[in-house]
Design a binder for these strands. Sequence first.
DNA 1: GTTTAATTACACTGTATAGTATAATTAAGT
DNA 2: ACTTAATTATACTATACAGTGTAATTAAAC
Lengths: 202, 202
Amino acid sequence: MSEVKNRDKSKKREAILNGAIDVFISDGYELASMDKIAETAGVSKRTVYNHFGSKENLFQAVVEDFLSQRQQLKTIRYSPNISLEDQLMAFANAEIFLIDSSRRLGLSRVLTMVFLQDTKYARETVSKYPPVYDMFLKWLEEAITDGKIKTENQFLTARVFYALVEGAVTYPALFSEGIDKEAIKPMLFEITNTFLARYGNC
Amino acid sequence: MSEVKNRDKSKKREAILNGAIDVFISDGYELASMDKIAETAGVSKRTVYNHFGSKENLFQAVVEDFLSQRQQLKTIRYSPNISLEDQLMAFANAEIFLIDSSRRLGLSRVLTMVFLQDTKYARETVSKYPPVYDMFLKWLEEAITDGKIKTENQFLTARVFYALVEGAVTYPALFSEGIDKEAIKPMLFEITNTFLARYGNC
DNA sequence: GTTTAATTACACTGTATAGTATAATTAAGT
DNA sequence: ACTTAATTATACTATACAGTGTAATTAAAC
């Protein structure tokens, strides 16, 4: 016998995740209550627990959802035919994507807070996902081979680029109400110009 | 009559502040309990409340203590006789000072977390204390007048410098167990070299 | 040594919240 | 239409914690 009738749970699961995201963003992890998450998701609290077991698990699911999106960013490969400025801008824009909707900005904020609270968890989590600048390092190598970039230490060079992007754009965005993509253009030019002034071959 | 016999409260106050700092650092603001703070300070909970009234006030006192130290950093003035590298390094070291003891690092971390939780409070608090790069802007102006730095936009230039320092040193330190002052030297050289490659007049 | 402000010990209130138990209800797959 | 897994409503437990009330104790200033 044993007829199996599994109803589709994905709709509820999705609703819970979305509600959880909203509440985590507005209240932070500690102050987010499971009651409020259930209410926001339009679901009973019991269902939240049936799906995720605990607040910690639920948060973990949200985090993994969020971080796995980074993986899906389209790869940027070195091209000898496109100006270095434009290629660097593509890397900068990939970072900006992570904070250019209020949802992603909010999630970045919450995740940053949790990471600061528990730096060990931060390092473990981040190590599960390839570092942001792995792709950049590959790009660098090819640019060097092509004679367009010169440096003695690729790792330092990569970190300088990401220091510029994160220090000038990402972190300021986390502390403000988001980013005006038009208003930061001069800063983006300044960043790429600075990088190329140091490492460009001209 | 009305003889006034005011005992010296400053010792207890100091002990409470120190205990509060320790607990805020290890538990974060939300999870720090007033009972634990009192115990850590070696003081009764009632005394904590007699001194500070509420958890929020106590935290505020900790924050103001911490931020007012920034003000006391010795001013760095432009000097035509010292190399630009060394002068820039002095600015970088002033930032590094804020994270080079585990106490200051921890406080920076907690403050960053609270600021991320409430960005409005962050902006209000920061605006009460002169922005970090005010001093740098003055320095820049004099360096430009002296013909050692050239830029069309001093504000962008100042932000680029602090983006480099914060993006490469400060924020990474917040997510790690602190900073090895020896190990970051190559990065500091790279930062100043990058800055001067773009804005130095050579 | 006396005075009294500061401190302590301790019991207490009120509230918030993670997580559970369960019986009733719903809705999807057959 | 029937079956049953999923969901809901509701009430509940246990705990943690901010903040208060108060009587007793301590220690510094005189």
